[in-house]
Amino acid sequence: MYSVENKEDERLIWSRFLKGDNQVLSLIYLQHSNALFDYGCRFAVDKHMVKDCIQEVFCSLIRTRSNLGETDNIRLYLLKSLKRKIIRELKNVNSQSSLITEQDFPFDLRWSENMDDQLYDLDEEKKHLLSEAMQSLTERQKEAIYLRFNRGLEYEEISFLLNLNYQSSRALIHRAIEKLREIIQVPNKKINHVLFCILHQ
């Protein structure tokens, strides 16, 4: 995850890039390419397309360098431009997609790998319920959860990416958490055992 202490570095790195330093761009690229790729794949199944869009994000950075302003949050800037590019691209490729509003654009929140592990032996029924609850989340809820728990973004950053205000993005995540808790709180010996193990790692 990302730490706040990096903010100063970010500002510095970015200003070096703005001044024409190309070496620092490779640094930015290496630092963010995996996060960008993963985020992009949540929108698009076609990985080649995601790679093309990442390429386009960086190329347009170079092209528009002289018009860009200061930032202390390079990652957010990159995530935002990638999302914009991918959604535009998806709409171009697929005429059906072109009818979907940005609010309803499908977002792939995969079943957590932790859950498939031996680590949790949740019984099948509870697994099923949890997975159903995850799938019943709205697309933007899934995206908000992803940004919060996988990318470690703060609520302000999430609202920026989702074009929502602070309160709504908080509420999105809050409701999703409550949904899962309802299922979890049904007493289950197995679950308690699992939780015990997590805590004693």
Binding site: N114, F149, L199
Partner: peptide, 15 residues
């Protein structure tokens, strides 16, 4: 404990 489990459920596999 509960918070940890919810977190783990939401933390999804990455490409």
């Amino acid at each position: 404990r509960e918070a940890t489990l919810v977190f783990n459920l939401f933390h999804s596999r990455e490409e």
